[in-house]
């Protein structure tokens, strides 16, 4: 966890890795975080690490590339491409003069990346930390790998340090590790939702991050929290309304569709209720002091930029903006 002093505000960090179990809405939260930061005047980059990701849909733009695209004021988005990252690295860092001399890079790259452990990971993490180091952006939000692989990704500079004893890569990993392990600059955001597997994976991931890396967990974001329908004591009223005489009375007032409406309400109540134990297990299992943010389930038709804006708004409220 963080060292002495309070943790910096989520958006005051420089590099946020957003991860979570598949299907919890990792990408939508990452794009909303980016949008919110940009709205608050931060030059922001959102980067999708998974090439097959759909980040562009969340900003309502066309396909993204390694070179960042401006998606709105102060907000850029890019898609990680490790081969491009390698080329950039060779050009900028090693000052390799004639790229053509390296030979058929595309073909050799695949081999190296597959054969040498952590190469793809380091090229990803290296590019992201580089953007931070060079101050190209105030905040870099990473739509990172899912829980299963993110520890390996974040731990890659250290792993490479252990494996590669000499060479230029070795010199490079030091500053990456500096940025990654500084809680004032880097944090992991774990997205989850109140269901069994996502909660279990979240707790496991946070434990692994703490055991296996020195990277700070900045926040847990619980996505798709279903609304509580009734206040204190109101559930008894609802139960009473579900009884035959009440149904009849209601039907006479608002039509026969009331049966469907009551069935729907019962479903809504039981769905909400079924989530409660998972939320409790999550809260009980998380380290003390780790901020938890809640985002409501979006009952919306849209799932593009409009939905991203709605999530950004909810996030802003949760963060006290």
């Amino acid at each position: 966890m963080t060292g002495p002093g309070p943790s910096p505000g989520l958006l005051d960090r420089r590099l946020l890795f957003v991860t979570g179990k598949g299907g919890v809405g990792k990408t939508s939260v990452a794009s909303a975080l980016g949008m919110l930061a940009a709205q608050h005047g931060k030059r922001t980059l959102v980067c999708q690490v998974d090439a097959k990701g759909d980040l562009s849909d969340f900003f309502g733009v066309g396909p993204l590339a390694f070179t960042p695209t401006d998606v709105r004021a102060g907000l850029s988005a890019m898609s990680m491409d490790t081969e491009e990252s390698l080329k950039e690295y060779l050009r900028l860092q090693l000052k390799v003069p004639l790229l053509s001399r390296i030979g058929p890079l595309a073909r050799t790259f695949d081999f190296i990346a597959t054969a040498a452990p952590g190469v793809k990971e380091i090229l990803t993490v290296g590019k992201l930390t580089w953007e931070v180091r060079e101050n190209h952006y105030d905040l870099v939000v990473v739509d990172a790998s899912a829980t299963g692989h993110v520890v390996g990704q974040l731990g890659s500079p250290v792993a490479i340090n252990d494996l590669v004893k000499v060479g230029l890569v070795r010199n490079q990993t030091d500053w990456m590790i500096d940025i990654l392990t500084d809680p004032a600059r880097t944090g992991v955001v774990v997205v989850t939702m109140p269901e069994e597997m996502p909660v279990s994976e979240t707790l496991e991931l946070i434990e692994r991050l703490e055991d296996e890396t020195d990277i700070d967990v900045a926040s847990v974001i619980v996505n798709r929290v279903l609304p509580e329908l009734f206040g204190r004591g109101e559930e008894t009223i609802f139960d009473r309304l579900c009884e035959p005489d009440a149904r009849e009375l209601l039907g006479a007032e608002v039509g026969s569709g009331v049966e469907a409406v009551l069935a729907g309400a019962q479903l809504a109540v039981s769905l909400r209720r079924s989530r409660v134990p998972h939320l409790e297990r999550l809260r009980d299992g998380l380290p003390d002091g780790l901020p938890v943010l809640y985002l409501p389930f979006l009952f919306s038709r849209s799932h593009g930029v409009r939905a991203t804006a709605q999530i950004a708004e909810s996030l802003g409220e949760e963060l006290g903006f």
Partner: peptide
């Protein structure tokens, strides 16, 4: 059951007329 057209009508009526319906039901039940 969530796609029921009659359900839509009844739900809209419930949402719109809830105070008035509440009066009637509280007494009636």
């Amino acid at each position: 059951v969530l796609l029921d057209r009659d359900g839509t009508r009844s739900a809209k009526a419930l949402a719109k007329r809830s105070p008035e319906l509440a009066d009637a039901l509280t007494g009636g039940l």
